[in-house]
Write a protein that binds this DNA or RNA. Sequence first.
DNA 1: TTAGTGACTGTAG
DNA 2: GCTACAGCCACTA
Length: 105
Amino acid sequence: MQKSFFQKVYETVRLIPAGKVCTYGIIAAHIGSPQAARMVGWALNKSALENEFVPAHRVVNRNGLLTGKIHFANNNTMQEMLESEGVAIIDNKIRDFEILLWKPY
DNA sequence: TTAGTGACTGTAG
DNA sequence: GCTACAGCCACTA
């Protein structure tokens, strides 16, 4: 049984340690389709609806911008979760993004 | 079955 | 430096 694109996304995102962040592009590239970054976000959106534990709040776009927050119930839910893990957010962006960036390799 | 859509990214103008 | 467009895969109507 081959793992679906979905499952690979879940597994990769779950590898992100607390206090670190990753980008859709990196995850997509790790899976094998760098240009399918949109699917990563979409997969995370679905995962939340399916009660899958995936730290989607640790995934942002390549600028460190919290674009995914729009899919959370409240606009500051994503930010609060990140801040509780020690990630500083300024104006919807990750502070020291390059330092906090984590890669699966 | 086909068409449309989406939490993005890289390249070109 | 900014804007526009194409490409990626899976799901829903």
